[in-house]
Design a protein around this nucleic acid. Sequence first.
DNA 1: ACCTGAACACCGTTCAAGT
DNA 2: ACCTGAACACCGTTCAAGT
Lengths: 190, 190
Amino acid sequence: MPLRQADVLQGAMELLDEDGLDELTTRRLAQRLGVRAGALYWHYPSKAALLDALADRIIGEMLTQPPAGGPGAAPAVEQDWPDRVRELATRARATMLAHRDGARLVVSFTAPPPNAVAYFGSLVDALRSAGADAPAAHLGADVVTSFVNGYTLEEQARQAALIPLDQRDATFRLELDIVIAGIRARLLRD
Amino acid sequence: MPLRQADVLQGAMELLDEDGLDELTTRRLAQRLGVRAGALYWHYPSKAALLDALADRIIGEMLTQPPAGGPGAAPAVEQDWPDRVRELATRARATMLAHRDGARLVVSFTAPPPNAVAYFGSLVDALRSAGADAPAAHLGADVVTSFVNGYTLEEQARQAALIPLDQRDATFRLELDIVIAGIRARLLRD
DNA sequence: ACCTGAACACCGTTCAAGT
DNA sequence: ACCTGAACACCGTTCAAGT
């Protein structure tokens, strides 16, 4: 049976995880799919478009459920905003680290794809729920995003396997808390 | 007269600024230097090594004079630590923006080259002078670096020319101040 | 010491033609 | 609708041989 777009994307994901971004060529991907390189252009207009779709798929893995009590939720523990921001930031980093060259790929799209917009929106919502107005929440979401991307990009580039993961986790957590403290001080008390 | 390593680096810098990182190929660089591609390998062992050198040269442009009153300096205004951090962060962003694909290139080296180490050291010194102990200063320098890199990378990627520069400058400044406020709260008062 | 010539093993992309 | 075959215009890198 013929290839569908989803098969191409799936193959690209597997090739990325196995061999990394530099080995993810149209020819190698085509070979893995049992097809010639030219065939890919029936499914995606360019390699760049395929990589954008791949980035968006990875970003999709960062998305969590909305904050707390939806309909039928226990009235229970409302997650406070720092915990919500920590959850989103932590998932973003973990997701990028889970894929070879994940940070490099995620940071390389040209126009923000749907899931990137959704992710950013979750961050904005968390800050609005804490009392920030729209411009402030946008600013805060942007600092968090920039920090997480910059941090993870460097971590992944320096093959940080030299430092054990739990230690890197702790450092990330400490630095993230600095950013959160800054948001509290400058955006939620001014 | 024959080419020297410095000529090759200079040519690479010019080609980067004119045409961007994707057009910076060994063949095009060689052509600009009046030489065949293979000749470059007498000066640099690989294209990656050349790009590392180029990144380090750009990072060198971020370095400023050490903080304040050296020998013979006016006893005058001692720069306080937030201003020093702001200066370093602002110069880093401005330098990356000044070169086409500057952020992408700076963020892509494998092992931190000399100027990157020096730059990071300046940031650490600024925080130590503010009373942070060594681990805290390191943490703080790292948050600033991650933030600046993540921010500038995205800014430059999204061809942010849509938004006027002075407005982007203002946003950067606001977000940087959030990071600085976090450092003050978590590293200089605990 | 520094470079050429020529090759090797690749790339992304296009497109007539096939089924 | 989906793919092949074959080409086009490139890559980075190596290395004998030239000067």
